[in-house]
Amino acid sequence: RVRRGLGSIRQDLNVSIACGDRVEIKGCQDLGWIPRIVRLEMARQLHFYRLANTLRAAAGQPLLPPDRRLDDEATEATVAEAVASRFPETLHDVSEAFASSTSGMVERGLGQGHVMLGLALPGMSGLLGTKTLDEEGAQLPRLGRELAGAAKLAGVRGVFHSDELPAYGITEAEVNVVREALSLAEDGAFVLCLAPHWQASLALEAVRGRALIAHHRLPREVRNVTVSKGAPLDGTTGPMRPLPGGARMYPETDVPPLAMAPERWTDLCANLPPSNEERRARLTPTGLSDDQCDQILSRELDDRFLEHLDQRPAKALASLMLEHETA
């Protein structure tokens, strides 16, 4: 029997344009949605390329070239350092500003012992965006949604940001108190997260990271089609995880980075085992055939082979070792 209907087949889409980068999209179960999903992803990549250059121009940094193949690593590193210095890592507990809030959402959260943490985003006022739909009802790309997507990976339901406030029962007066608490300039934006302290901290750290990335080309990542009631909501996508490398290795997210002393790093680099190319180069002068070299290397017999090379002719020794894997 052949199973039919949604869910019986799955397609992964890979989308990239010159000014963006490769994004893998999962959850494309309905073939009819694929053109729309691709179009919206292309629009998203173009939007964030333009936004990156808007942010870089405002910060006095060199603009991104229109083709990612023209990117310069040294320039990007310099921009990253300059931008990071402008974005504070400090999170502010602004729960007190909402002590008398009439927002049901905020009141319930604070009543459960959650906190409202705030993060300042200098120079981003008006750039986070508000919900706007295209002619087919799909949400247009906006940075605020990307920041919320980053926060949700920490397990929170979402965040509030200044471009969309006052709303959700949060008043203009409360917004002003938050701006004052964060010492924001007129062009500054902010993001709020209501959750247990540890979770809100993780969420806003992710938000800051995504805000910094907004000054660069979009990251390679795996995204998932936004689904509602088992079907695509509007063709837009949300982040899932970084795109794995060629060896299908994902960055480890559960183990904190290990700080390594420079002398330890130098010692490790000086004592690395030989590369495959170096191992083969050691065998080349012995006169072994390519096939014998391949087998010796694949079975990791090269050290023992070289150790006993003075006891027998090279090809005879190789044949003996490959036949018995001993010497």
Rank of each mutant, 00 (worst) to 15 (best):
G111A: 10
A154N: 05
V191Y: 04
R39H: 10
A270Y: 00
G137I: 09
M240G: 01
T284W: 03
E263M: 14
L165M: 10
E180F: 12
V38N: 01
S95G: 07
T132R: 14
A99G: 05
E278Y: 01
R36Q: 12
K229I: 01
P256Y: 01
D93V: 06
R69I: 00
P274S: 08
T226L: 13
P251S: 07
H92S: 03
S16I: 00
L233I: 04
P88G: 08
R3F: 09
T266H: 13
Q139K: 12
E325R: 15
L91D: 05
G104A: 08
R280I: 02
M240I: 11
S8L: 09
P35K: 07
P256K: 00
G104P: 01
H324M: 11
A154M: 07
G188R: 03
A185C: 12
A84I: 04
P62I: 04
L127R: 13
Q199N: 08
G169E: 03
R248Y: 10
N276F: 04
L301P: 08
Q295V: 05
L194M: 10
S319W: 00
G209C: 07
E73Q: 11
E277N: 10
I37R: 08
P196D: 14
P232E: 09
S95Q: 02
R282K: 15
R223F: 01
D67A: 11
A77W: 03
P88E: 09
P239K: 02
P242W: 06
D187M: 11
P313H: 11
I34Y: 02
W198R: 05
P273I: 14
L268F: 15
L301E: 05
L110D: 06
G5F: 06
L204D: 02
L133F: 15
I17H: 02
R217N: 11
A173I: 04
A77R: 13
P251D: 07
P251K: 06
V38Q: 09
L301A: 10
A99C: 10
E307R: 15
W265C: 06
G149W: 02
L268Y: 15
P274A: 11
E146A: 07
G113F: 08
S298W: 00
A77D: 11
L258W: 00
R4S: 13
D187I: 05
L182S: 07
Y168I: 00
T237N: 03
D134Q: 10
L143V: 08
I25W: 03
